[in-house]
């Protein structure tokens, strides 16, 4: 039997790698991939909690999370395609029209 903390530490590792990717990478498509990593780590911790609390709620919730993640990827990549068509760039620091 693997203790819950192992799963949570793995989830923490994946989450922080994802956050590092979002903060560090310039290409917006890698930022979206890192967001998917974060989603995955959260799914893992939800299922781990559900397993160790002998509950079903966390597992059902993961189904909804996966659906929302799929919707997010579809819309995010559509926005990416639209932005690339208009601005010809995929670097996040060049997309700062709304900053000032």
């Amino acid at each position: 039997m693997i203790p819950l903390s192992h799963y949570l530490l793995l989830s923490l590792a994946l989450f922080s790698i994802g956050v590092a990717g979002v903060l560090l990478r310039r290409s917006i498509i890698i930022v979206l991939m890192s967001l998917e990593l974060i989603f995955n780590s959260i799914n893992l911790s939800l299922v781990a909690f559900a397993h160790f609390l002998q509950s079903m709620t966390g597992r059902v919730f993961v189904v909804f999370t996966i659906t929302v993640a799929a919707a997010e990827v579809a819309v995010g990549l559509a926005i990416l395609v639209a932005v690339y068509r208009r601005r010809k760039t995929v670097y996040v620091e060049e997309l700062n029209e709304m900053k000032h």
Binding site: M33, E36, N43, H51, I66, A69, A74
Partner: peptide, 22 residues
């Protein structure tokens, strides 16, 4: 973690759809 259904959903949606979309 004894959730084979979620594993199948993960493979279908993430590996099958999301990565292919990327």
């Amino acid at each position: 973690l004894r959730s084979p259904f979620l594993a199948a959903v993960q493979v279908f949606i993430y590996v099958g759809a999301v990565v292919v979309l990327f």
